[in-house]
């Protein structure tokens, strides 16, 4: 008998494809949450593999804070065209204009929390019964407790103390009308797994992930990209730095790291020796000890 074993990346891929297909089979109206970041690009790629040679049988949803890196939007539109899927853009700016949500005030204002309201309202409006997300359990301590199929009540809330047990590979997607599921097919991937896989499979990424020169602001140790969306505090100055991003989200709260890694291979070497988690640069996680858990309970990604 030959050597029938899959390496860790192929084993993770097989698991994720299985979960994505399960969503298409168990739900009537799923949607894939697409931010343009590496995890959602990976998700798009795995979904393509799951249904090949058919097209991905569900639309993508981008919750647009309006504070985007131009590179992300350009990349997003090209990828959508290549995959031939439908893209729905739900705009936080429009929600502010319509009075659905109010903009936070002050220098630390962020549209991060507003995304939750916009996401939940979009799920309700379009009757989505499952939202696929690129969340990983290694990202943050409350995410470590997340299921693959994560039930949300009619208010879109997560109840971490009362989750459904998830056994073997049997996923229970049963729910009442008005409730929905968040599904996390790449739960078991680590940041390094994602990077290794992206390189191994030669998957294109926005240039932001590689080292480049950019005007930045150093705020409380977090390096933020200087932009019109981010007013300077009194004594702050912008400076040109060579940076890359480990995660890509809202421009005003996604921090960069100083780096000379201008190829994906160099990025992997940096990550392998890195002593900080990728979310260290996320200003939104620094608000309190349990800020991710609190946001997730309300219905955040």
């Amino acid at each position: 008998m030959g050597n029938y074993h899959l390496n860790h990346l192929k084993a993770l891929e097989a698991e994720s494809i299985f979960v994505i297909r399960e969503v298409a089979a168990q739900f009537e109206n799923p949607v894939l949450l697409f931010s343009g970041g590496k995890d959602s690009i990976l998700m798009a790629y795995l979904a393509q593999k799951a249904f090949y040679p058919a097209k991905i049988p569900f639309p993508f949803l981008h919750i647009d804070t309006g504070h985007n890196f131009p590179e992300t939007l350009e990349f997003r539109d090209q990828l959508i065209q290549k995959l031939g899927v439908k893209l729905i853009v739900a705009s936080v700016q429009e929600a502010i204009d319509e009075g659905l949500v109010a903009e936070e005030k002050g220098f630390h204002a962020s549209r991060n929390n507003l995304q939750t309201t916009v996401l939940l309202s979009e799920i309700e409006k379009k009757n989505f019964d499952a939202a696929l997300g690129g969340g990983r359990r290694d990202e943050e301590k409350s995410r470590a407790k997340e299921r693959f199929f994560s039930h949300r009540d009619e208010f879109g809330q997560w109840d971490p103390k009362n989750q459904r047990p998830e056994l073997w590979n049997l996923y229970n997607g049963k729910k009442n009308y008005g409730e929905h599921f968040r599904v996390f097919p790449i739960s078991n991937w680590t940041e390094l797994d994602v990077w290794q896989y992206l390189v191994q499979e030669e998957i294109a990424l926005p240039s932001l992930y590689l080292a480049h020169k950019r005007n930045c602001i150093n705020r409380n140790g977090v390096i933020l990209a200087a932009s019109d969306f981010l007013p300077l505090m009194n004594d702050e100055q912008t400076e040109e730095m060579t940076v890359r991003f480990r995660t890509i989200g809202d421009l005003t709260c996604t921090g960069a790291v100083e780096s000379n890694a201008d190829t994906l291979e160099k990025v992997i070497i940096e990550i392998e020796t890195s002593r900080q988690t990728e979310r260290v640069a996320r200003a939104d996680d620094k608000r309190s000890e349990t800020s991710m858990e609190d946001r997730k309970k309300e219905g955040y990604f």
């Binding site: 790629y45 191994q200 499979e201 030669e202 294109a204 990424l205």
Partner: peptide
């Protein structure tokens, strides 16, 4: 979905 900013150098991971 190939990345083109370098030669095809995908390393084989252990």
């Amino acid at each position: 979905m190939k990345y083109t900013n370098g030669q095809k150098t995908a390393p084989i991971f252990k």
